[in-house]
Structures are given as C-alpha cells and as structure tokens.
C-alpha cells in the first residue's frame, strides 16, 4: 500500500515537518535497511546428542544355549559332555567352583547345580519332577516354580514377542526366559540396569531463570 499512498502525497505539499519530498527517501532508507537487516531472530538449534546406535539393536539381551549346548574351544565346537564325560564332578554340595567361575549363584533356595542340570547328561536340564529336557525347553524348567509367569508367557503377556504380531503374515519370535534373565542370578530388577539414551532436547527448553538447559 506504500507506493499507492506516496504517489499522490507529493502533489499536496503542506507545511510541517514531513514535507512531501521526504517520503520517497524515507521509504528508500527503509528498503535499504530491510535489505541489509536479514533475519532478525537467530534460529535456535535443538539436536539430540550423539549416542551409540548399537543400543537400538532388537537382539535379545542374552545368548542362549542350543541343544546340545556348544561352545567354541580352539575352533572346535564342544558340548558340555565333551568335558563332563571325562572330568567327573566330585560332589553336588554348594561350594566355590574351579570351573565356570563367571557364575554367581543367587537364585533363592536353588543352591545346587543338580537342581536344574541333569547330573548324568550335562547337555540337558532336569525338571524338578525328574524329567530330563533340552536347554531349549528351559521355559518348562522355570515354569515349574514360576507358574503364573509361565502362564502369562504362554499367552504372550510376559516376555518379548518380536517379528510379526500376525502369525499369518510372518514368523513370531518368542524370547524364552534365559534370553532376558540370568538363571543363576535372577536379580531384582529382573535384568541388569542399563544406560538410558539421551533425553529430550526440544526447542527453547529453559530452566526457571531463562537460561538454556543443556
């Protein structure tokens, strides 16, 4: 509207402190200032700090044992019985172990190895009712005591289900007990604490004194 207004103003010079001829130059000055001023408000940035994207893996937290459980020793796959056939365990009493030193045993009343491990076939587990089962069926083992959780797990209420919610569209991966929990030391909380990923860094976050939080 500016050019409209000024186009006629000139024709009616009147005394006063804005003579008509000044309008043009004032608007020119404005044009120059607008051209030079640019963006008057700096654009704030709010980016998430870098973090290790490996944390976004969907893999289970623990490695589980197969049937029979195998372990690479000197590039050869060994099963439990490869050793236990030769080296007999002296006694079933709870005691500091010479082998398997990484195991920290703290599982309530279960203090003996033979409570869960098949004494005769170390490639297998043994249920409290005496039935020998493979490691892959550990759910039946745990479920003997943790009955309610076993039911929930059966319905999919407890535990992780990955892959497809619709079994007709693709495979469902049900995580079993030992893929999350350490059977020798099922602490509370039931898994090891982990580092959280960065919190929100939205625009214009300030603390009560108006300073930017970082």
């Amino acid at each position: 509207m500016s050019q409209r207004k000024t186009s006629r103003n000139g024709s009616h010079a009147t005394p006063g402190w804005v003579p008509g001829w000044a309008l043009g130059p004032i608007l020119f000055a404005l044009a120059v200032w607008l051209h030079a001023s640019g963006l008057l408000t700096p654009i704030p940035h709010a980016a998430t700090p870098p973090f290790d994207h490996a944390a976004l893996s969907t893999a289970p937290r623990r490695q589980i044992l197969g049937d029979p459980p195998t372990l690479k020793i000197n590039d050869f796959d060994r099963t439990c019985m490869d050793c236990h056939k030769i080296f007999k365990t002296p006694t079933d009493k709870p005691r500091p172990l010479n082998q398997h030193k990484n195991i920290h045993m703290d599982h309530g009343p279960n203090v003996k190895c033979s409570t869960c491990h098949d004494w005769d076939d170390r490639n297998r587990l043994v249920r409290p009712d005496g039935v020998s089962i493979p490691f892959t069926k550990v759910v039946d083992q745990c479920g003997q005591c943790h009955v309610r959780i076993r039911y929930d797990w059966g319905y999919g209420i407890h535990g992780r289900t990955n892959g497809y919610w619709d079994p007709k569209s693709g495979p469902q991966e049900r995580r079993i007990c030992t893929e999350c929990h350490d059977p020798h030391n099922p602490k509370s909380p039931a898994m090891d604490p982990i580092s959280p990923l960065p919190g929100p860094h939205t625009l214009r976050l300030t603390n009560p004194h108006g300073e930017h939080d970082q």
């Binding site: 207004k5 006629r8 103003n9 006063g16 607008l34």
Partner: peptide, 29 residues
C-alpha cells in the same frame, strides 16, 4: 482521497506504512 491529508495525516500514514512493511518483511522471513 486516502492519499490526501495534512502533514499529521501523512506522518501517521507513513509511520504505519513503515511498520507494516517491516512486519511484511518479518513475515516473509
């Protein structure tokens, strides 16, 4: 008629025009 007025009118209109143009500039940004 809207361009015709005494100096007070013109000053007033000039100020408004300048502010409106500055606002237009900011909106463009």
């Amino acid at each position: 008629l809207s361009f015709i007025g005494d100096w007070r009118y013109r000053l007033w209109m000039l100020i408004l025009t300048v502010i409106a143009l500055v606002g237009l500039h900011s909106w463009s940004e």
